Every structure is written in C-alpha cells, then in structure tokens.
Simulated assay, not measured.
Amino acid sequence: MATNSSQRAHKIPQSVLVVIHTPALEVLLIERAESPGFWQSVTGSKDAVEEPFEETAMREVAEETGLDGRAPGHRLSDWCLENVYDIYPEWLYRYAPGVTRNVERVFGLCIPRAVPVTLSAREHRDQIWLPWREAADRCYSFSNAEAILLLPRFS
C-alpha cells in the first residue's frame, strides 16, 4: 500500500520462477541488465495477492521474453514446489514494513525448440540456451540452479 500518490505500492512477497526449456532439456537463461553475469530463468512477483501463480507465470514469461505460454505446442506446468527465502537487505524497501521473506512458486514452460526471445531491455541484456546441467552451473541464484537440476524429473 502506498503512503502517498508519488510512491508505488509495495511489492507482494509472492513470486514465480519459470524454467523455460525444450523437450531436449535445453534451458533458456537471461542476463539481468543491471547485473552483468547474473544469469537466471524468468522470475517476477504477483501484481495482486489474488492473482493466481499460473497467471503470474504466464504474464512474466510474456513480459520478459515475448513468448506466449498458451501458444500451440507450449506447455506450462506447475511443479508444486515453493522456495521461501530471505529478501536481500538492499531490496527490503520495496516491500511493506516487516516483510523479510518471499515465497517463490516454481513452474516449467516446455516449448518445442530453442528460439530467440524478445527481451525487456529494461530488465535483461542477453539470452542463451544451454543444456540443463550447464544452465544450472551458470545460474546466479541457488534456488534457480536447484530448480533446473530438477528439470529431468518434471519434463
């Protein structure tokens, strides 16, 4: 909730992690614009508490890659896994006072083949498709790497 009209509403401490992959287990990683070398899968927070995690996942995929998770041949799957982690101290100001932890729901999005994506230049600067083990090794985030290592179980 904003305290005045010049401030944005606080972020909701519920987010998604979407591992975009092919049937051959190639994984898309995108590099954060403000943090060169920070490679990750698609992530993002809910826009509203009542927004279903699946809708958050579809929206974030579209915003960050231009991909349509509902396109023919695309299959979004809820892995029914949640990561709970402490929010980095430098980002706490984005959340309501007293909020220190985030719940991240994990999804997979299988697409028929590796394709170039349309990045949001505000958020990301580069993209790469890698075999799943290499992608896990390249991830900055431990929870993201761990999710990718689970990919063979969920594909």
Rank of each mutant, 00 (worst) to 15 (best):
A96L: 11
F154D: 07
I30M: 07
R75V: 08
H124C: 07
L25G: 01
H10I: 03
A62S: 12
I87N: 12
E134C: 09
Y93E: 13
G69K: 00
L130A: 03
Y88D: 14
E60L: 10
T100R: 13
K11C: 11
E55D: 10
P36S: 13
T100Y: 09
N83H: 15
R8G: 01
P116E: 13
E63S: 12
A96V: 05
E63P: 04
V106W: 03
S141M: 13
H74S: 08
E26A: 10
A96Y: 04
K46V: 07
C80M: 06
S77K: 05
E134I: 02
L150S: 12
W79A: 00
T43K: 03
L92V: 13
Q7D: 10
A121S: 12
P97N: 07
P13V: 06
V16Q: 06
Y88F: 12
H10T: 15
E90N: 11
E90V: 06
N4A: 07
G44C: 04
S77E: 03
A147D: 02
A2G: 02
E104C: 14
I87E: 09
S77G: 01
W79E: 02
T43Q: 03
E50M: 12
V103K: 14
Q14L: 10
E146C: 07
P36V: 12
N4H: 13
Y85C: 07
R125Y: 07
N144T: 13
R113T: 12
A147R: 00
F107R: 07
T3Q: 01
A2L: 02
S15H: 09
G108H: 02
H21W: 06
D86Y: 07
I20N: 04
